[in-house]
Design a protein around this nucleic acid. Sequence first.
DNA 1: GTCTATATAGGGATAGAC
DNA 2: GTCTATCCCTATATAGAC
Lengths: 225, 225
Amino acid sequence: MKTLDGNAVRTQRTRERVLAESLRLFNERGEANVTTGMIADALGISPGNLYYHYRNKDEIVERLFRQFAQRMDLEPDAAADAANLIEDLWLYLHLTFEAIRDYRFLYRNLDDLLARNRKLKAQFNRIAERKYQGIVRLCEAMVQAKAMHANPEEIRVLARNILVVATYWLNFDSLRERRASAADGLGRGAYQVMSLVAPYLAGEARRHLGAVSRGYIRQSQASLG
Amino acid sequence: MKTLDGNAVRTQRTRERVLAESLRLFNERGEANVTTGMIADALGISPGNLYYHYRNKDEIVERLFRQFAQRMDLEPDAAADAANLIEDLWLYLHLTFEAIRDYRFLYRNLDDLLARNRKLKAQFNRIAERKYQGIVRLCEAMVQAKAMHANPEEIRVLARNILVVATYWLNFDSLRERRASAADGLGRGAYQVMSLVAPYLAGEARRHLGAVSRGYIRQSQASLG
DNA sequence: GTCTATATAGGGATAGAC
DNA sequence: GTCTATCCCTATATAGAC
């Protein structure tokens, strides 16, 4: 859009900078602890200017939530053979984890956030439901490929547990203040989740999973009390 | 203490009533959304009176946290035989769940709460660590009793997952707004957690667990998407 | 688009009478 | 112990000039 004038271009950039900086601060200190003034300060703009671009703080949160929802909106492939299925699951969980980490402020006050805003709540539940279905489908495909042994009820319960651990792992991890860890909550989270699946895998698939996740986790320390 | 005069007795009762009512309101609407004024109103006392009994709002939170910590401070027995071990685990998890439910407001904003107060954070981590150790010990006892097949690393990972699911299940459950469920998040939570253990149990122990948890869950609907 | 100045409101907490 | 009245601070949001 080279035809836009200078002001319009600046507007565009300021709008985006506000969003990016808000995300950074929200993640760092928690949404409730970040004032509009702090956001403006961090950007070197005035509070009034911020309110020119966004009606209110909630609108900023909603925009960020939309970005997050798009990041989360991905379907797992369902490969046909066992080996690829495991890597599909691994990749799927990994991408999900990254999205959660990048917008982790949403997860710190989920209840309050969703209680304040019915639209967000509905949308969040839609995302969770899709994740749940995606995991169930992957598991069913694995059963079909003889890579997994599990009956339908076991799959449902397993998928629910995967969802819970994936949703809250980073929260849980950040509570425990160990110096070394902060960096790679992601890798250990994926490891935790995969270990939920492991016991249901057939011998060969199980070994394959072990190889994938051990390779992944090796970079970081695997110790945790 | 029948020798106390009327005022002192009233004081005692008001102090406790403030605590009980705060807990109720915090659980219902979230700590951040409950003002000292609302607490006073609900009790039919003045705001000033409330501050006679408690220096500030944080002191109320800290007292409630102490109560919670005491509820959580229980050790699992380690029975010698397989059947009793499973019931021990079940009972242990059940009591833990109840404590979490009764003080669930603590879990809604855990990060913020613990970030604001280093003492609480340290104490919370101590509780979590004890829970973790308790679970590990129970699992080791089960392995010894031939009721469980798991190596030490598997036990550690399993215990971590149990802790995560137990900690966050009620949060997770309350996000999804289904009419029927609200009542028995507890039963379904225990069911979810036990299903983490199930795949590691030997055939007979596994059937025993199935019986225990199915019997427990039967009262409520087991359906959940 | 951006600024400065300010209105507004709410909630935590205190002073002092009873 | 309890009340009323009020202070003070912070944060959201707006008004109006540039």
